[in-house]
Simulated assay, not measured.
Amino acid sequence: MTGDRSQACDLGDAPFTPGQAKACTVREVLDRVGGKWSIGILVAASQGPVRFTELERFVEGISRRMLTLTLRNLERDGLLRRTVYPTVPPKVEYTATPIALELYESLVALTSWAERHRIAIAEARAAYDRAHGPVDPGPASVAGRA
């Protein structure tokens, strides 16, 4: 997680009410599974064991470092299982855990929806930008426009 949201959730010395703690946990989970790279990785791993290099090819635009970090976080969250085989060179595979497999249909539905509506969304953005000027994608502009 990044930005102010993670700081609000990660303050160990701040007491949370049960509702605040629950909202924080849900937000953290949604941030992880809805992350830019996580969806593609989880979809690929839900099809069966997948190797690092296969994920590099499948997840378009991801750097090796970001793939490594995302895999580590998904494994930490219990969404991926990493298996190292004692071969030379070592063979490493990633598989989706049962909770990730439960999430799979939702991720496919979300990516299918995005594919179906990407042109309409691009057209809506262009029309908005013509009428109002482009929106700065930074966090300050989002907060300022709310």
Rank of each mutant, 00 (worst) to 15 (best):
R72A: 15
D4R: 14
R116C: 02
Q20R: 12
V26A: 13
L71H: 11
F58L: 13
I41F: 01
I119Y: 05
T111A: 07
L74R: 11
A131K: 15
E28I: 02
T17E: 08
H132D: 00
V29A: 10
D10L: 15
V26F: 04
G61N: 08
M1Y: 07
A8Q: 13
G35A: 07
L110Q: 08
A96R: 09
T87G: 10
T97D: 04
L30C: 12
R145H: 05
P139Q: 05
M1V: 10
P86E: 14
A120Q: 14
P18N: 06
V33I: 13
C9G: 13
R76M: 08
C24Y: 02
L30Y: 09
A96F: 06
L107N: 07
R51N: 04
T25F: 05
N73R: 15
A124M: 06
S106D: 09
I62K: 08
L103D: 03
A140Y: 06
P134I: 02
P98F: 05
D13Q: 13
P15Y: 10
D77R: 09
G12A: 15
E102H: 09
H132Y: 14
F52E: 08
S38R: 03
R145T: 08
Y104C: 11
R57G: 08
W37Q: 10
G3M: 02
R5E: 05
P89L: 10
P49L: 04
C9I: 14
D31L: 11
A96C: 09
S112W: 01
A109H: 04
D136A: 07
V29S: 05
E105G: 15
D31M: 08
P86D: 14
Q20F: 03
G48H: 02
T17Q: 07
A100M: 05
V43Q: 12
S6M: 12
A23M: 03
A100P: 03
L42W: 04
P49V: 05
S112Q: 11
P89A: 06
W37R: 11
M66L: 14
P89M: 08
A45T: 11
W37H: 15
P137C: 02
G35L: 03
C9P: 00
S46V: 06
K91C: 04
G133N: 04
R130T: 07
V43R: 13
I41N: 01
L110D: 01
Q7P: 00
Y104S: 15
A124D: 04
G34E: 02
T53Y: 01
W113L: 13
P137I: 00
D10A: 15
A120H: 09
G144S: 14
T111N: 04
I39K: 09
V84E: 14
G78Y: 03
L107I: 09
P139H: 02
A131V: 03
L71A: 14
A44N: 02
E54P: 01
T95D: 04
L11F: 06
A122Q: 05
A143P: 00
S106Y: 07
M66C: 06
E105R: 15
S106K: 09
R72K: 15
S46R: 06
V135G: 00
L67M: 11
A126R: 10
S46Y: 00
A143W: 09
A100Y: 03
E93L: 12
G12E: 13
S106P: 00
P15K: 12
V92A: 06
L80E: 07
A140H: 10
L71M: 14
M66P: 00
L101P: 00
S106E: 08
A45C: 13
T95K: 09
V29Q: 05
V88T: 13
A146P: 00
W113H: 10
D10N: 15
G40T: 11
G35K: 02
